[in-house]
Structures are given as structure tokens and as C-alpha cells.
Design a binder for these strands. Structure first.
Lengths: 224, 224
DNA sequence: CCCGGACCTGACAGGATCCTGACGATCGCG
DNA sequence: CGCGATCGTCAGGATCCTGTCAGGTCCGGG
């Protein structure tokens, strides 16, 4: 995925990448980048630091908390602080404009070499009797298809990507709506309750979508 | 492993790396680098391009055919071709001198993060027969899962990150509730007592969660 | 324009957890 | 060995957290 607001530059880079055999989805602002990265699975994200709305740094920081996807930052600035900040928020590499497309492609190749291609595109995620198919936007529980709303699906998809990990309400909120949002309401609880009604055999006794008192929720296999 | 022929620079870098919590073995020429890298397993190799005998490029190319170890090249030259050559022979990253030690350390950290966490920096921390898994928010003692409340978990997590260090009650308090709080009550003592009941074989005779009279508490391995 | 679904919000109740204060046990020190 | 300071332990009540429900808002489709 390439996030770059300058449409001409974006198009130029996309061509270089395509010529090298990569497939590139282009987005033009930070929120769009965040949404796309959460919805689909990319091999690598190219993030311009200067993006309208949410800048590349913020996108990187947020996504790094949620996944290990490879991220390469692009910036016009070249101060060392900027660079360090980029690496600190979790970028895997960093390039300063102007750079040669050849170098960009070389770095992309280097980054991708580390991750076996097969490991990059898990088709359907599964935990216990629960499956989530992100591209198709479908969910099954015990083989039975389940209808989920957008918000519910976003929560499930986020959690099933890191089974067992505890998510705070704030983190889960970021997945349903955009960032910000300081909601102190019962929003997430309500979604979780509705999810339990749909995926748990006995919603009063959850086996997979568990509460971690004082922290948040986590998704587990259910039957060790 | 750091391969650098200039002894002064090598020593300076080694100190920076050590200060950051890394352990560094230093070698001074290419052949030595090759030998060391084949003999032991390193998390990452820092290779100066200018090495007597075998230069860094060659070392990198040779080792890359034998393993996937992370390699970061250091060079005085800054031509793009040189850089591309470095990435092409299989380096994972590339830095041009002069660079700031801070940047080096940041890049090292970034590279290390890419390696499957389970290999090097396991998400579960262990001290003696005790393990703490922060993302999953779980604790085991002697292999048996232990239920901890949020407060108890916060205390354990803080202590296991620096085994053996003594924590005052005030410091531990900061980990349970937010900051401030000047509680002078028995709060922490109660939590510690409850923890001992859960993780110690004999809570009256703590072996891991010890009291340091007049100071606070510390967590140790128990029986080495 | 009306309608329905999805989402958010606020309120409430039932628990789980935490804090507090008191008391006795233990420790360090002279 | 005696003393003050510190620590372990207990239980009750204050506090915080979550499940649940009933509106209210927003949005797109008919």
C-alpha cells in the first residue's frame, strides 16, 4: 500500500513498483491509510510522513500497536530527529526525499525478503470454532455463518489477528470509529455483548470472547 | 557482532550498544568476522565495509548464502551505487558515516524487532518458576496458570522486568493506580500478600517475592 | 418524507476489586 | 533482651468495573 497525497508522485511510484512486479494500492490521506491497512492485509506499507489529516507518523504508531506489518516511511525533511522519531514509532525503514526509485525498490525488496511470501496472506483467520474472512467480510462460529455489523466485524477482526492478546476498550474503539474519540460510554461493551450473543453458545458464560477485569477483552480458543 | 577495524570507533560503538542493553562482540577484520559469525549465533551483524582482508561486502555476500542473520552495513562512502550494492548482496540495512550513535542504535532496534519475537525477546518474561505474559495478561507459577487481578498483575509485571531490583511501595503504587496517590496504608502489602498466596509454594516462606526490610520488595529467581 | 438498522449514550444494578485501619508478629539495633 | 519501627494479616466498607437495557441520533434506502 502506498500512502502519498501528491497524486503525481503517487502515480509515478506506483508505476515503478508495478514494473518491479509488485501490486500497489494507493491512498491519499492518513485516515484512508489506516482504514485500508486494517481492512486488508498488505505485504508492506509505504507511508509519506506529510499526509493531510493524520500524518504518516501517527498512522505508523497506531498500526504498529496492532500488527507487525512492514512499514517504510517517506519524508521530505531530513533532520535526524525526524528520522529517529520515525524509527521510534515503529517504522522498519525510512527514506528521505528526493530518493531514486531504484533505491526505493531495492529497499522494498530487502524488507520483503525477510518474510516468506506464504506467511503473508493468511486466507481465513481461525481461533477455536470461530473464523473470520477479512476480504469476504464474513464470520462463522462452529461452521455456522454469522451476520455481523461493521462495528462488530471490526472488533472481531482486530482481535483474531492476535489471539489471546488483551485489547483495551480504547484500542478497540480505534478500530470501529477513527482515532480520537475519548468515549467513556458503554459503546464497546454493547458491541461485545452483541457479539457474544452471536458467536457464543452461552452468552452468559463466554468461552472465547472473554473479559479481563480492569483491562479489556481478549479472544481465545475456548477449549484448551 | 560488530566488525570494525578502527579500534577507537569500535570501542565507542560498543559502549553505545551496551548502554542500550545489547551485548556486543567486537572483531577487527573480515576473516575474523566470518569465523565468529559461523561459530556463534548472533542476533545481528554490524559490518564495516572497509575491513582489512575480506571487506564487509564480501563477508555479507558469503554469509547471506549461509544464513538469514540480520546484517547492517556501515560505510564511509555515500554513493548510491555503493548503497545499492550493499542491499543487493543481502544487507538488511545500510548506514553512511558519519552517523549518530543514536541513529545506529535506533536502526538496530528496528531491525531486531522484525525477527520473530519468540526467538529473541520472548513476549513472556520469566524469573525462576514464574512467567508473566503482558500482552495476554496471564501469569504462571511452576507451569500452573494463576489468576491475577489487574493490580496484582501490574505489580508483578513491573518487578519481573527488572528481576532482583528493589521496588519501594511508592514505585509499585504508581504501577497499580495512575500516578499521584500518596497512600500510606497497607495497600501494597495486601497485594503482595495476595500474590504470595498465588505464586509461592509456601506463602509464609517466600522464595521469589521477597521483603527488603525498610525499603520495599524485590523479585528473585528463588533457587538457582 | 418516512422507515429501519446501526451506533452511541446514560443510567442502573450486581459484583469484583481495592483501600483502610487495627492488631499482632517480626525485624534491626543498642 | 527490650524497644521502636516495620511488616503480615484480616475483614468490612468504599470504590470501581462490567453487563444490560432503554432511549436517542445518525444515515441510507424506499
Amino acid at each position: 500500500m502506498l500512502a502519498e497525497d501528491d497524486r503525481r508522485q503517487a502515480e509515478a511510484l506506483r508505476r515503478y513498483l508495478t514494473a518491479e512486479g509488485h501490486e500497489a494500492t494507493v491512498v491519499h490521506d492518513g485516515e484512508e491509510a489506516l482504514r485500508a491497512a486494517r481492512q486488508q492485509t498488505f505485504d508492506l506499507l509505504l507511508l509519506d510522513v506529510m499526509l493531510p489529516g493524520l500524518d504518516g507518523m501517527q498512522v505508523c504508531r497506531i498500526l504498529r500497536q496492532e500488527s507487525d506489518v512492514l512499514m517504510l516511511m517517506l519524508t521530505a525533511r531530513s533532520s535526524e530527529d525526524d528520522l529517529l522519531r520515525g524509527l521510534d514509532v515503529g517504522a522498519d525503514d525510512y527514506m528521505t526525499k528526493p530518493f531514486s526509485p531504484r533505491e526505493l525498490v531495492a529497499r522494498v525488496r530487502t524488507l520483503l525478503r525477510r518474510v516468506p511470501a506464504t506467511a503473508r496472506h493468511p486466507p481465513v483467520l481461525r481461533v477455536g470454532r470461530l473464523t473470520v474472512d477479512e476480504p469476504r467480510h464474513t464470520v462463522t462460529a462452529g461452521g455456522v455463518p454469522v451476520d455481523c455489523t461493521a462495528g462488530e466485524f471490526a472488533i472481531l477482526a482486530a482481535m483474531i489477528r492476535q489471539p489471546g492478546r488483551v485489547f483495551t476498550r480504547g484500542q478497540l474503539l480505534e478500530h470501529t470509529r477513527g482515532i480520537d474519540r475519548e468515549s467513556t460510554g458503554r459503546t464497546i461493551d454493547v458491541h461485545v455483548m452483541n457479539l457474544r450473543r452471536k458467536i457464543e453458545a452461552n452468552p452468559r458464560r463466554p468461552r472465547q470472547l472473554l473479559t479481563v477485569y480492569g483491562v479489556g477483552y481478549k479472544l481465545t480458543a475456548g477449549t484448551p
